[in-house]
Amino acid sequence: MSDTDTTFVFSDENTTWIPLSSYPIPNRGMNFGDGVFETMVFDEVKIRFLDHHRQRAKEGLLALGIDTKYADPRSIENLIAFKYPGQKLRVRWNLFRSGTGKYTPLENHLVQTIHLEPFHASPKVKSLAGFSDSVRLFYSPWSRFKTLNSLPYILAAQERLRKNWDEILLLDASGNISEAGASNIFWEKDGQIFTPSLFCGCISGVSRRVIIEEFWKKDITILEGAFDPMEILNAERAWVSNVTGVSYLDKLNQTKFSTEPIEWLDKIFE
């Protein structure tokens, strides 16, 4: 697969996706990060967790005041099923405000682009993780969405590489655990499951939502809240998740965790 044959833009006029070799510059997505995005998995025949992606995308657009008309990943699913049947693909769906202008938008129409690439599942185990000392996250009315301004995660990824870690955990402005570099974080202690509240500035991940729902279906208590880093350092097991799957943490700082998988949890992403 190449970038030239796996990038498409949605045509409002024809209500269909057309191949894209370039998009006009300047645009508000590039100039201001004025939009949101979804990372999705096409699982050979369908987009995994499609309804959850659609809901989060629309909620993000509404938070930014962008028209939600045509914001429906079913059209993406139909396109991929027709052009790339039987393939497992990672789908980047960008949704941003049309027009240029300056800080004040001149219009609120929706522009959509997608980019497809081969899917690679999350590693089953991440050997070494640590806490970021250079990036803090802040709660806002839009912090739960994946906006096109992803600088905190870029800077965190650079720190992770410098320190030769496999994963990095981010804290919020109050020093509470927020999330991982590109994933949500969960841990298990004394038979209970914990994950940070959205008020700690983390992304409202699709996989986070699915995992929480599955635990509740199994009548397993999962607690959302503001947790000091010592809470996870005293846990027995910890894992991170995004739409590509679950990765268990082997070691966080000097704390060693169990990496025994939760089989039913892993199967959600198979």
Score class of each variant (00 low, 15 high):
73 P>R: 04
77 E>Y: 07
44 E>T: 14
30 M>P: 01
68 T>K: 05
59 E>T: 10
73 P>E: 11
28 R>A: 07
79 L>V: 05
32 F>D: 00
61 L>H: 10
34 D>M: 11
48 R>D: 10
25 I>K: 05
29 G>Y: 04
39 T>G: 10
28 R>K: 13
35 G>F: 01
37 F>E: 03
35 G>I: 01
73 P>A: 11
70 Y>F: 14
73 P>K: 06
28 R>P: 10
80 I>V: 15
68 T>W: 02
24 P>M: 12
42 F>N: 02
44 E>A: 11
71 A>G: 05
72 D>L: 03
84 Y>V: 08
69 K>W: 02
81 A>Q: 07
57 A>P: 03
51 D>Q: 09
83 K>S: 14
52 H>M: 14
29 G>S: 05
62 L>F: 12
70 Y>T: 06
14 N>Q: 12
42 F>K: 00
75 S>R: 04
60 G>S: 11
49 F>Y: 14
51 D>W: 03
68 T>R: 06
81 A>P: 06
50 L>W: 05
41 V>R: 03
58 K>Y: 14
38 E>V: 01
17 W>P: 00
14 N>G: 01
65 G>S: 13
80 I>F: 05
39 T>R: 07
47 I>D: 01
58 K>C: 15
46 K>F: 05
27 N>F: 12
74 R>H: 09
58 K>N: 15
14 N>K: 10
83 K>V: 12
20 L>C: 15
32 F>L: 13
62 L>S: 14
70 Y>V: 06
60 G>K: 00
18 I>Q: 11
73 P>V: 04
48 R>I: 12
35 G>P: 03
19 P>Y: 07
18 I>H: 06
79 L>D: 11
62 L>Q: 15
28 R>F: 13
20 L>S: 09
29 G>M: 05
66 I>N: 07
57 A>T: 15
30 M>N: 01
46 K>E: 09
81 A>R: 05
78 N>V: 13
21 S>Y: 10
72 D>G: 01
28 R>W: 10
24 P>L: 12
67 D>K: 09
23 Y>P: 00
28 R>H: 13
19 P>G: 02
29 G>V: 03
75 S>L: 06
52 H>G: 03
14 N>C: 02
72 D>A: 01
59 E>K: 15
71 A>W: 00
84 Y>C: 04
24 P>Q: 14
41 V>M: 07
39 T>P: 01
58 K>H: 15
